[in-house]
């Protein structure tokens, strides 16, 4: 994907969350957004995922500008996948029905087609034995992996992952990160917001440091984490890295 963001502004009430944010990624498969809480990472991701409309500025993915009206945005959202921090799954439906819902209701597959579509991914990620369970019967890690799968089985152009492991304990975090790592190896394109720096370093083609509503630095992860001169970036990594 090739992402070009110009002059992006987002405000909630009188608070400016994104302040003329600029970013050009060049051609990358994975973009990882890092930075302090409240710096604007998640706000940026929601705009990229077509969930919120910015006050000003433009976002261009692979030469196509993101629309601003709801019907076009809905059509756009159907071509991408988004996973939030928690509570992605619909609690009244089984894991299987959660996976089938977008395939059948949004993408027009018949039930046999939809079931055939999810069978192989469920097996591959070791979730086939949990498909009949309701979300309340799944562990946090299983829930997130089903949520990622639900975003994936509609064959999206790219995934948006908003702190997918922030609500999980270390063991479950590991199983979800492992899945995302596998997706990267399979060629899935994604934009990921995370606080897992070791993981970010491993999967990021490009890392962007978002703080104070702007991209304060971007480049290969090693450069951003180890050798960035910007004081705000250096002080952040000095505090979060062991």
């Amino acid at each position: 994907m090739n992402l070009e963001i110009k002059g992006l502004v987002q405000r909630f009430g009188t608070t400016t969350v994104l302040d003329r944010l600029e970013l050009r990624t060049g051609d990358v498969r994975s973009l990882v957004l890092v930075g302090p809480s409240g710096g604007g990472k998640s706000t940026l991701l929601r705009i990229l995922a077509g969930l919120d409309v910015p006050v000003a500025g433009s976002v261009v993915f692979d030469g196509v500008a993101l629309p601003r009206d709801e019907p076009s945005l809905r059509a756009y959202r159907r071509t991408v996948g988004t996973v939030f921090q928690a509570y992605n799954l619909f609690p009244h439906l089984t894991a299987m029905d959660n996976l089938l819902l977008p395939l059948m209701q949004v993408h027009g597959l018949s039930e046999p087609e939809a079931r055939a579509r999810v069978r192989e991914p469920l097996e591959r990620f070791g979730l086939a034995n949990h498909a009949h369970k309701r979300p309340a019967e799944l562990s946090g890690g299983q829930k997130q992996r089903i949520a990622i799968l639900r975003a994936l089985v509609v064959q999206p152009r790219r995934l948006f992952l908003d702190e997918p492991t922030s609500a999980l304990d270390p063991e479950m975090t590991a199983e979800v990160l492992e899945m995302i790592g596998e997706l990267k190896d399979l060629g899935t394109q994604f934009v990921l917001v995370t606080h897992e720096m070791a993981f970010a370093r491993r999967v990021a083609d490009l890392m962007a440091f978002v703080g104070e509503g702007r991209v304060l630095a971007h480049g290969p992860p090693g450069e951003i984490i180890d050798r960035c001169d910007a004081p705000r970036v250096r002080s952040f990594f000095a505090r979060v890295l062991p």
């Binding site: 995922a49 969930l51 809905r74 059509a75 959202r77 159907r78 996948g81 988004t82 939030f84 928690a86 509570y87 992605n88 799954l89 619909f90 819902l101 977008p102 209701q105 949004v106 639900r150 975003a151 509609v154």
Partner: peptide, 11 residues
């Protein structure tokens, strides 16, 4: 988050 998830899958 349920409404967000519903929008995210394109409902």
């Amino acid at each position: 988050t349920q409404r967000d998830s519903a929008r995210a899958i394109g409902l």
